[in-house]
Structure formats: C-alpha cells, structure tokens
C-alpha cells in the first residue's frame, strides 16, 4: 500500500482492515523512553520492599517478592515460581531495557545503537509475555480468598507493581512501532 505519512497528531489506517499503521506524535518517543527508564527502579522497589503484611491473632508478618521467591524455590513449586518470575519480573525488565537501549541514543541525537533493530524486535515480541497487569488481578483474587483468615495490608511493593502495570499500558498506547522502525537505520 502506498500512502503519505500522516500529519502531526493524525493516524494512518489500513483501508482494508482499519488497523492503525502509523501515528505521528513527536512527543511519543520521549514518553515511551520515560516509561522504559522508570521501569528498572520501580522493579527494584517491587522486588525488595514489603509486598503485603498479614496480621491475625497478635502475630504480624511482612514479606517481599524476594522472600516469597526464596521460600518457593526450596519447595517442589519451583517451576511455577520460575514461570511466574519470568512473566512478571524478567520479561518486563528485559523489554524495558531493550526499549531504552533503542530509544536513548536516538533521543540523544547519537543515531541508533548497534543491533538496535534486533533489540527493538525483541521488545515488540516480548509484549504479550510481560504480564504485570494480569498478576495484579491474580493478587486481588488472593486477597479476597484469604480475607477471612487474616487481615491483609498492602505494602509499597504492591503499589510499585500497580505503577509498573500502568506504565506498560501507557507505553502501549504511546508506542508507534512503524515510527520507531523509521528512526532505526
């Protein structure tokens, strides 16, 4: 299909299937880069700070995601822990690093990094497998399930996950893949 680039603020759609092919929002690059750079520090908080605190019968216990991973790694549940760790920590982090690797040199006016194309393809392919937002719904279900057994309060790590999920969704909305491909030469 042959078409003109869209004017700033407009989007170009495929005349057949109506899929958005390309948007033109110069600020979007900055936004995606900001989300990518914010992910690693938020992930550090999400892993090390207290995720939730359970209290009941005078006892009180706090746990971080790292504590939970350590505990689960010793039991026979380690394959499950590994899969969940990949889906909510490793893959989102890898995706954010790949995006930053691609976009930061472009933003600084240095031209694309070596292997930028491969890194961006990795970031695009990882998207469906980064599941922070789905994990949060799962945690909400757990809170309902255990609410009768103990009182649960949410820690800063939980809210970091909420922020990570929100960043991922906003990043999706801002990222125009075709525009980034044009910048990688």
């Amino acid at each position: 299909m042959i078409a003109q680039r869209p004017a700033p603020g407009e989007r170009m759609r495929c005349p057949r299937c109506r899929a958005v092919l390309r948007t033109s929002r110069p600020a979007a690059l900055d936004r995606v880069l900001a989300f990518a750079l914010a992910t690693p520090p938020l992930m550090a908080i999400a892993l090390t700070a207290s995720f939730l605190t359970l209290s009941g019968g005078g006892a009180r216990q706090e746990a971080s995601v790292i504590d939970a991973a350590n505990a689960v790694a010793h039991a026979n549940t380690w394959p499950l822990a590994l899969a969940v760790g990949a889906l909510i920590v490793a893959l989102p982090l890898l995706r954010a690093l790949a995006l930053a690797y691609v976009l930061l040199p472009i933003r600084l006016g240095r031209g694309p990094a070596r292997r930028a194309a491969r890194a961006f393809r990795l970031a695009v392919e990882l998207r469906p497998w980064a599941m922070a937002e789905i994990f949060l719904i799962g945690v909400a279900v757990v809170l309902v399930k255990v609410s009768g057994l103990a009182s649960v309060s949410l820690g800063p790590a939980f809210w970091s996950f909420v922020a990570l999920a929100a960043l991922a969704l906003m990043e999706d909305a801002a990222l125009c893949e075709r525009s980034v491909w044009d910048l990688i030469r």
């Binding site: 359970l54 216990q61 746990a63 504590d67 939970a68 991973a69 505990a71 689960v72 010793h74 039991a75 549940t77 499950l80 822990a81 899969a83 969940v84 889906l87 909510i88 469906p128 497998w129 599941m131 789905i134 994990f135 719904i137 799962g138 945690v139 279900v141 757990v142 399930k145 255990v146 057994l149 103990a150």
Partner: peptide
C-alpha cells in the same frame, strides 16, 4: 488470550503465602 493466566498467578501467590507460613 493472555488474561487467562490469572488463575496461575492466584495459585503462585497462594503457594508463596504458604511457604512464608501465612496459611
């Protein structure tokens, strides 16, 4: 499609709570 993973995260979170002695 990805959203069907919810139950896996439920089970994993419950398992973690158990290992930590919560349940």
């Amino acid at each position: 499609g990805r959203w069907s993973m919810i139950d896996i995260f439920v089970v994993a979170t419950l398992a973690a709570l158990v290992q930590l002695g919560f349940l």
